[in-house]
Nucleic acid binder design. Structure first.
Length: 224
DNA sequence: TCATTAAATTGTT
DNA sequence: AACAATTTAATGA
């Protein structure tokens, strides 16, 4: 299992802090273990923390009134999330749920704002994070309208390995076809077929609950 | 370690 | 949506 130190070592903003400030940050952070299906936070909760994923995989989703799940993003190790609601001082807008055994770091809002007030690299990190996420969602919006299901699956998988938002990831994604379906906005069956088509094209390799990316560039440019 | 069973996931229609 | 097949995890000999 990875530790808080692993997460901090992989986070650009943390390596820019003085030893003193990093220590202050470290002591303010709380660690929480989440079993599959457990909520990191729920829609409507007050935004008291900024979240960092130490290990595991989470999803940010919204549930429609009829119970249909729409997943907006998956959050792998080394990613940080929740800055949007904290900055706006508003309640959480989405549910965040562990997809498998996970460990998250909770940075109190007070620490978050202290870093924001005193540290330029931290500001740059947040700015870049918001900008990259905006670009990713705009891309998803565009793909949703233009792409065939195969291409949507391809682009979604490529997005999960986004270098800026999710640094230092292996090309190995542990997720079920059903969860991928929630993320892509397609049925489990359709995802299943698309994955096999992509495997035949030599872009990925599929195994039980595991997708291995062989050609990320090929996935990005699939169907465009 | 191996066999059995239940649960989760995948393949197919 | 339904059903069969496969993989994994858990249990106990």
């Amino acid at each position: 299992m990875r530790s808080l130190e692993n997460l901090l070592a992989a986070s650009k903003w943390a390596s820019a802090l003085s030893a003193e400030d990093l220590q202050r940050t470290r002591t303010a952070v709380v660690i929480r273990e989440l079993q599959p299906g457990v909520y990191a936070c729920r829609k409507g909760d007050p935004s008291n923390f900024w979240f960092g994923v130490i290990d595991g995989l989470l999803k940010a989703e919204s549930l429609s009134e009829t119970g249909k799940a729409v997943t907006f993003a998956t959050l792998p190790s080394n990613s940080w999330f929740g800055e949007g609601s904290i900055l706006k001082g508003e309640a959480r807008k989405y549910d965040v749920i562990a997809l498998r055994d996970s460990r998250v770091a909770l940075m109190p809002a007070a620490t978050f704002f202290w870093l924001l007030d005193t540290n330029i690299p931290f500001n740059r990190f947040i700015l870049t994070q918001l900008n990259e996420r905006l670009g990713q969602f705009m891309g998803a919006f565009e793909h949703d309208r233009l792409d065939e299901p195969e291409a949507r699956v391809a682009h979604t998988i490529a997005d999960m390995l986004h270098p800026q938002l999710y640094p230092n990831r292996e090309g190995r994604i542990e997720i079920s076809h059903e969860e991928l379906g929630h993320l892509v906005g397609a049925s489990r069956q359709r995802v299943n077929q698309a994955l096999h088509a992509l495997e035949k094209s030599g872009l990925i390799k599929v195994a039980y609950r595991v997708i291995t990316v062989l050609d990320i560039e090929g996935l990005r440019t699939f169907g465009v």
